[in-house]
Design a protein around this nucleic acid. Structure first.
Lengths: 196, 196
DNA sequence: TTAAAAAACTAATAACCGTTAGTTTTGTAT
DNA sequence: ATACAAAACTAACGGTTATTAGTTTTTTAA
């Protein structure tokens, strides 16, 4: 009899998506049942199908919403004026904020994309590959400009991406750390490694 | 009628474990069925139970074998003579080799430990925490000695761990890259960031 | 107040899962 | 050759899953 409470500026589908992201992060996509998700929403499982098409559709929504956010920000950075360092700093800070603000969704996109069904899976993987290429191109340009050290841009990109991803592990230490100090530390550390 | 071929110096249980690691890495633990694992071994699913106790036992074997390997190497490094840099270099190179030589097992231990059942789950998490603490202690000692820059040892440890973990993504580029050059690059890059 | 639409419910289904039981085949050692 | 053990097989079970169908309740709008 309970109803799904819609969030401000969000459909009930969005509420389901949000709760699903939390559940999928904690237990994994396949280990999360629709019954448990419904339970978390105070509702019976079949009721969910008034709002969503299928379980895998929820995963798709989560993964592609995250991918779109990252792609959009990357586009803005590409259009940005300024030197390579500022572009990279902007991008790194965005990654950090996404990881801290939309932790569950980003985590699920990073860990559960394998459970996407075709053709979504291929689509997602292509997007990741393209994102990586665009980041590498920004770094390459910085190397050509002489702004960055001579290095393999692929390696630099991976180090940056893996470092921001390590923030996953910081979730549990959140209370003990000053977030903005952490952010500055990480930006400095990563950029110092590649700036000339 | 086909039989499970035992590997040199390995029981049939080990062969199952190995094939399971490959399957679990590709599809995830929960998305991998015993029937599919058996298929990969040329056998019917119930036949597996002549060699193993349960599906979750396989996951346990994979996760704790990896954990033991890392713990053992860490113990040797702690007993090592030499300065902090050499210790860290040894450890980083070991991580890289584990990632390249036992890719599937390490990947599964990193990605599927959540699917362990209690009390294995708690045991595993404790081991990870202790491992991290011991690494942090090595770094702290280096800072106290004046060998390393003044920095938060926790941050340094996470950057190192996340960087070697990023080698997961390198699997697919294996052919295009010189592995030992990559290893040297990564060691240099990581240590340059923290050495005084 | 009433009709329509939205969203909850109960009941049920077909598919798949890990696993067990019981049996037959295969390999090994006397 | 024969006996024993190891390891394969078939058949099946109980449980869980996502999902559908059909119905009832709740909300919305006129």
């Amino acid at each position: 009899m309970a109803k799904i409470k819609a969030i401000k500026n969000g459909s009930k589908k969005d509420v389901i998506s949000l709760k699903a992201a939390i559940l999928f992060r904690k237990k994994g996509y396949n280990a999360s049942s629709m019954r448990e998700l419904a339970d978390n929403l105070g509702v019976e499982a079949p009721s969910l199908y008034n709002h969503i098409g299928s379980k895998s559709e929820i995963l798709q929504n989560i993964c592609f919403k995250v991918a779109n956010d990252f792609n959009q920000q990357l586009s803005e950075v590409e259009k940005m004026a300024g030197n390579t360092m500022i572009k990279l700093e902007t991008l790194i800070r965005f990654h950090i904020h996404m990881m801290l603000d939309s932790f569950d969704e980003v985590y699920v996109a990073n860990h559960e994309w394998k459970q996407l069904e075709e053709p979504c899976l291929s689509n997602f993987l292509t997007q990741r590959k393209v994102y990586e290429s665009r980041l590498i191109e920004i770094i390459s340009m910085g190397i050509r400009n002489g702004e960055l050290k001579k290095m393999h841009p692929h390696v630099a990109a991976l180090i940056i991406l893996s470092a921001v991803r390590s923030l996953e592990f910081w979730q549990r230490h959140k209370k003990n750390m000053n977030i903005s100090a952490l952010e500055d530390d990480m930006v400095t550390h990563l950029l110092n490694g590649i700036i000339k």
